[in-house]
Design a protein around this nucleic acid. Structure first.
Lengths: 195, 195
DNA sequence: CCTTACCTACCTTCCAGTAGGAAGGGCGTC
DNA sequence: GACGCCCTTCCTACTGGAAGGTAGGTAAGG
């Protein structure tokens, strides 16, 4: 059981990397086959269609994020610190090029061209992220750990947009540190001390 | 001369729309041929390769933006108003689905998978936009029309990221008004009166 | 003996791009 | 003003390769 499903995990992992690079239409079963060292047809055994593959990938991506967010809530209490850890997570992912872009941000940009089943999952991810960030903002507002200038829900959406936009700029310039440059003042603004 | 080059303009216009939908790998010469009502091979007469086509498209997109920005500077003096007009422009484009996404934001997300010639043009667009926004921020800071909490350059990058992130969210949710929801407080924060 | 995992071989469709020709307009020359 | 010439535009017909997906078989393990 432990590494019986390794192949399908490898397929998902390589698909994730490929999507981060070029989006839904930017990779093929042949690309995955090259990486995983398996025949193209064998991928169809694990995921009958490309839609199945990406739907599963995004769905699991959200589940993983949900787990990570729950764990983060256990280890870090302060809402401001939580936002900082979240931003730092992406900063280092982009910096060391391990996960230079969020899969769902990537797919969201292609939304109108996505198979409906995949689009639904992407939407679900955005909703999950917004809901979580909203709860963090709400708690930070109550506890005085965050200084909000709008409703928590709006602040959450604005923060999420900043993160995604910063990713995009870092990629456009080919300068990973741009992400940090953009997010530092964004976090600063939310800090109760103003620094 | 006036409408001699109409066909090549139509090709560029339809390519722009198609890229906004699905990105670089999300459209083909056949798709353009359907829209422009021309044979696939005829497109190659105007743009020998797909790379040529998109490079030209992005380059002209930047030129148009430069002209629009210059015109905006003539008609509107107040830096805060300029940012508002810029945001409103995109809000209405997204709202009426006429140009529901920025071509360069779309292509930037696919950066690593783009032909180098195209990637260069996309980078140039981002640099132009950042430079312009920085100059607006600088003037607004000097004149007191904008309240900045960081250096003009950083504020400009953050503002640009918010715009792009807001576009992404609007698309992900399938709710055009999300763009406005995110940008309203972003502008508010920059307003000298705080409202 | 059945299921799982993987294979070879193949299909259809689509892709970017090429070859080569037809139609027509502009233009200089006789 | 008619002829020949060329350039632009668009066409039909095609190529080689890559796309997603299928058919059917083999080997291993419970």
């Amino acid at each position: 059981m432990s590494n019986l499903s390794t192949t399908s995990d490898e397929i998902l992992a390589s698909a994730r990397t490929l999507i981060m690079n070029g989006g839904y239409n930017g990779f093929s079963y042949a690309d995955i086959a090259d990486v995983v060292k398996i025949r193209k047809a064998s991928i169809h055994h694990h995921f009958p269609t490309k839609t199945d593959l990406v739907r599963t990938l995004v769905s699991r991506y959200r589940e993983d994020a949900e787990a990570a967010v729950a764990a983060l809530g256990q280890n870090v209490q302060d809402p401001f610190e939580i936002l900082k850890v979240y931003a730092d997570h992406w900063a280092s992912c982009i910096e060391d090029a391990s996960r230079p872009f969020c899969v769902c941000a990537m797919l969201a940009s292609e939304m109108p061209a996505l198979p409906p089943e995949v689009a639904v999952e992407v939407k679900a991810f955005f909703r999950f992220l917004a809901t979580w960030l909203t709860s963090v903002m709400e708690r930070g507002c109550k506890e005085g750990s965050l200084r909000l200038s709008s409703e928590p829900k709006v602040e959450a959406e604005a923060f999420m947009a900043s993160v995604h936009g910063a990713m995009l700029s870092a990629r456009a310039y080919g300068m990973p540190d741009v992400f940090g440059v953009i997010l530092t003042p964004t976090l600063q603004r939310l800090s109760p001390t103003g620094a």
